[in-house]
Amino acid sequence: MTKFLLSVHVLAAILAVGSITVAASMFPRYALRALGVDGESGDGDRTPGIAALLHRVCRAYAVAGLAVPVFGLATAAQLGVLTDAWLIASLLLTTIAAVLLALAILPGQRSLLDMADPDDGRQPVPDTARPTAARLAMLTGIFNVLWATVTVLMIVRPGSTTGA
Rank of each mutant, 00 (worst) to 15 (best):
F4C: 07
L6T: 13
A12I: 11
V17G: 10
T21Q: 14
V22T: 13
R29K: 12
A31P: 02
G36P: 01
V37H: 07
G39Y: 06
G39E: 05
G42Q: 05
G42F: 02
D45L: 10
R46H: 13
P48L: 05
L53E: 14
R56V: 07
V57S: 09
V57Q: 12
A60R: 15
A62Q: 09
A64Q: 13
G65I: 06
A67M: 14
V70M: 11
V70T: 13
F71N: 09
G72V: 05
G72Y: 02
T75A: 15
T75P: 02
A77R: 14
Q78H: 13
Q78G: 09
L79T: 09
V81I: 15
L82T: 09
T83P: 00
W86L: 04
L87K: 05
L91Q: 04
L103C: 07
A104K: 14
L106C: 00
R110F: 07
L112W: 13
D114P: 08
D114C: 06
R122L: 15
Q123W: 07
A129M: 02
R130S: 03
T132W: 06
A133D: 01
A134K: 13
R135W: 04
G141N: 06
L146H: 01
T151H: 01
L153I: 01
V156F: 03
G159K: 02
T161V: 13
T162E: 04
G163C: 09
A164E: 09
